[in-house]
Amino acid sequence: MDDLLNALVLLANFVLIPAATYGSQLALGALGVTLVYAILRFSNFAHGETMAFGTMVTILVTWWLQSHGIGLGPLPTALLALPAGIAATVVLALLSDRWVYRYHRSCRARPVIFLIASLGLMFVYNGIVRIVIGPADQRFADGERFIVSVSDFRAFTGLSEGLALRTTQGLSLVVAVVIVAALFWFLERTRTGKSMRAYSDNEDLALLSGIRPDRVVLIAWAIAATLATVAGVLYGLDKGFSPITYFHLLLPTFAAAIVGGLGSPLGAIAGGFVVAFSEVLLTYAYKRFLTYLLPESLAPDGLLQLLSTNYKFAVSFVILVLVLLLRPTGIFKGKML
């Protein structure tokens, strides 16, 4: 019986919690991508760099707060700096729209032109982030490290396996739930939110109904920038900030959005968790887990890792391709291009 419990605790500690954390971070990122897609109808390749930019501003403000001795006690100071990061990123997104996308919208350019424009912005953001904060890794999590630590858990349960829930992990989950709930309330219940869904559904009819496209686009950018910053900060708190990682997050983020169905907010969340859990489940070494469950004579001698963590990108990609081949609109029916 203890063996079974130990095995489950092990799995929870190394698979369930990390995957759920990563999944909620991906879901937030994918929501931003899917929202831009739903309203502006292109895949925003600058989203990863937008995340990096928002995180960078948050880090700088965090440092400033820390240097003045302002903190949140057990919670990371970054939480206090987050609104500033969001504000800066929203301004960046709106300026980008004003100076870049708006022109192409006014001449009704093809979606791929927007995509190429987003590549240009990707360069610009990328450069700005590296000039301001540099390409190196930054850790900015402070406050209490654990909500539940391994030793607490062991003392409490008497099991030999420990379970740890880090503050950043708990925070990721809670913040993601709050943000997603707020976003859905906005989209489903408010007039503006509904007008955005209407615009995404049928642009021409939305115009006929008196919905102002400029306003819808503005709000879409603001929300996407907010989601990008929150996702970036949560990821950075959890795993550390380095600009290059945020570029690499683009692939799983897009995979999540497409797997769920591009343009579908619910799909983005589902997709985030599908990608995160597949990645973690396939790259976890099951040796210890099975050692608990199997009789000693059958104990495995290899690591029993299906896939080296080096290939976690491959997981996103394979899921992506499978979904595109089997169900091109994604789990929740998204938009066809």
């Binding site: 895949s43 692939l251 897009f254 591009l262 290939y311 595109l324």
Partner: peptide, 16 residues
């Protein structure tokens, strides 16, 4: 696949 999807797919292939 459609153009946006092809972009993401090729991005993934390069990473792999």
């Amino acid at each position: 696949l459609r153009s946006d999807y092809l972009a993401i797919a090729t991005l993934g292939i390069a990473e792999i």
